[in-house]
Design a protein around this nucleic acid. Structure first.
Lengths: 213, 213
DNA sequence: CTCCCGATGTATCAGTTCGATACATCGGTG
DNA sequence: CACCGATGTATCGAACTGATACATCGGGAG
């Protein structure tokens, strides 16, 4: 009920934080933000925008009507921008890392806005996510062991591949967590900068993700 | 509209092909079949079952009522089994590899029933899926190149990871495709009638099944 | 210059799916 | 024997999707 719309609110506010935008663009940015696909339909977006406007977390400005004097050749569109309340609300959401934050749908969005999230919360979310995945891994492996004999090879291969994907994701998370810890350690002062990466391709963001504000 | 319920029909029929089952079990099997998660709710399952019964593709037998003589201590449950029409319908669906077959939701299910699918169709689906993924990869890379400068490192990392996952999947598909081709060549190639198994379990992924802890 | 077409843009609706929940029985365990 | 978690069937309202309608913009073909 709330889960989806809540995370959608967060995503919208997060994007509007960077710059005011109109619906169409918002949708595009949202879709490419989330990895690759996962098309968000207008049927979700517009109601969400409406709700946000009603709650006065954002304000919609029609570009066409306001200037009666200047004949802005521009097409009519509604540009949304955050209000003060909206900024506050966003900050709250970003600071709060409830157990929902590491479920599938939520995690990607939360991660996408890590730059606006404090280090504490980042770490909490990453670790929560990791635990969640490990849990799932365990569960699947157990039930897979029970059905081992009764399934054909294709099904088996599908499960194996699924498992591998999740394992890969866990490793990815481990890299990110290490990175966060290193950054934190540097910040809190102790000597060793923990310099070189263990491998050439941990692929995680190199350091230097500082908060600027 | 149809897309989801159609694939759900296929999945149900495919499972019932193996053995008659009741709703609860069907759901469990379905959920662990599909990789790991992706919970299917009863709100979808029961209506689907009802529809299938109406179309007489399956038949539901209440285990409790039939035997008035034997006091079967068994709990009341409805076991579903395929009808002749259902088997026919399933065979049709399995033989048909429309362009929908390699979309995200469909592919997993189609793959899960590859053992019941002929080699021709298997190959078509695998290749269709591969093309689809490559397409997506291309698209994402292009749009990513355009936005490269404007996004923070976490967003970048998220996209990079997403891309990597898809690339990995493409490689996986390549392996499977090669495997199918080899199997096919063996079959059509030199005259070794000894190999003639009725329908294909043979090829299948050979790498996968290694030890689990 | 004009016409057409694909991209941009806002918006809604019917049909589906989901999450929660209700209800009931079964098999253990303390 | 009382509790409790797993098994089992079933439904409802809220939410989401895919399709569609409508309109304007920019640019290339003729």
């Amino acid at each position: 009920m709330r889960s989806k719309s809540e995370i959608l609110d967060l995503a919208i506010l997060g994007l509007l934080q960077e710059a005011p935008m109109h619906g169409y663009e918002l949708r595009k940015r949202l879709n490419l933000l989330l990895g690759s696909f996962r098309a968000l339909s207008y049927g979700s977006l517009y109601p969400a925008l409406k709700s946000l406007v009603e709650r006065e977390l954002i304000a919609g400005v029609d570009t066409a009507s306001p200037p009666p004097h200047a004949l802005s050749g521009k097409r009519a569109r509604i540009v949304y921008e955050m209000t003060a309340d909206g900024k506050e609300h966003l900050a709250e959401m970003l600071a709060n890392a409830g157990p929902a934050a590491w479920e599938d749908e939520h995690f990607d969005v939360r991660f996408a806005f890590f730059a606006q999230t404090d280090a504490e919360t980042r770490l909490r979310i990453l670790e929560g996510r990791r635990t969640r995945l490990a849990e799932r891994l365990d569960q699947v492996r157990t039930s897979a062991a029970r059905t081992r004999e009764r399934v054909d090879e294709y099904t088996l291969e599908l499960q194996r591949h699924g498992l591998e994907q999740v394992e890969r994701e866990v490793k990815w998370l481990d890299g990110l967590i290490d990175n966060e810890r290193d950054t934190r350690r540097e910040r809190t002062g102790s000597g060793r900068p923990a310099d070189s990466d263990t491998q050439g391709d941990p692929g995680s963001p190199q350091r230097g993700i500082e908060e600027r504000r």
